[in-house]
């Protein structure tokens, strides 16, 4: 973590000595890590090292789990998201989240799903249809689905459901989008389609993506953080991490010697 930031990089978020627990289990230890605006930051590391826990701290989803707590801080635009006067609801709207398993709302149509976030947050939106169209266009689903907006969401393929979940998140106009292994259940073609979408989203959003795939991290990310046993081992430009990592544990991991 010795790299000096070029001047055009603004920190959208920052974890500052962040610790997280599940009851007695110390899942994250003193994580200090910037998230650069309009860039893709990948979080990699072996199973159980705390990747999901870390990203769930970024939008205060960690505290939803019974017995979960944190210490340290997470800054969004230089302001703590843990302050007493900050509403977790507004944090979650500014920092949207995509899960590993597509989780569209059952018993709703495609259209209802896209705008569900607006309804759920009680936002007063006049032109729901144009919000839906804009969100679907951003995930290249508009052309595919514009004739089927009133179809039950269960009829979509898993990959379409995942893109729909991304659209549902974007409809709330978040500033940061956190993705926890969004392609884990998808085949290579579907995966590359999602990766293309991530590329496109970078202009409008700041992205944090957890992935098990080194290739994916190398392909999509500008910066990469390597976690191991709840600690941040190394954070740097993606090409530095994947070509000449400073820590031997990072090198072991990316060359497949463990994990």
């Amino acid at each position: 973590m010795t790299r000096s930031d070029p001047p055009d990089e603004t920190e959208k978020m920052r974890a500052d000595c962040l610790n997280a627990w599940f009851g007695e289990l110390h899942a994250l230890k003193d994580i200090t890590l910037p998230v650069i605006e309009n860039k893709v930051t990948a979080v990699i590391g072996p199973s159980g090292c705390g990747k999901s826990t870390f990203v769930r701290c970024l939008n205060r989803m960690h505290e939803v789990t019974d017995g979960a707590r944190t210490s340290g801080d997470v800054l969004l635009d230089n302001r703590s998201i843990f302050r007493a006067d900050v509403d977790p609801v507004s944090v979650r709207q500014r920092v949207g989240m995509i899960f590993q398993r597509p989780n569209p709302f059952p018993a709703m149509t495609v259209r209802e799903n896209v705008v569900a976030g607006l309804r759920l947050s009680g936002a007063d939106v006049r032109d729901v249809d144009s919000v839906a169209e804009d969100a679907l266009r951003q995930v290249s689903l508009w052309v595919e689905l514009k004739e089927r907006l009133d179809a039950p969401v269960e009829r979509l393929s898993v990959e379409q459901q995942q893109r729909l979940c991304i659209a549902r998140c974007l409809a709330l106009q978040p500033e940061v989008v956190v993705m926890d292994e969004p392609c884990a259940l998808l085949d290579p073609i579907a995966t590359s389609r999602i990766e293309e979408i991530i590329h496109g989203l970078r202009d409008r959003y700041t992205i944090v993506i957890v992935t098990h795939s080194m290739q994916q991290a190398a392909r999509v990310s500008d910066y990469t953080a390597f976690f191991y046993l709840g600690e941040l081992v190394e954070y740097d430009d993606a090409d530095v991490i994947f070509t000449k990592p400073a820590d031997s544990r990072t090198e072991d991991y990316i060359t497949g010697r463990f994990g």
């Binding site: 989803m61 939803v64 989240m97 899960f99 398993r101 709302f105 059952p106 976030g117 759920l120 709330l172």
Partner: peptide, 23 residues
């Protein structure tokens, strides 16, 4: 996971119940 999706979209517990679970 469906409730979690709603919470992550900024829904409160009762809105999740009212708009998602009840549906």
């Amino acid at each position: 996971s469906v409730r979690e999706a709603a919470i992550a979209l900024g829904a409160s517990r009762w809105r999740t119940t009212l708009f998602v679970v009840s549906r």
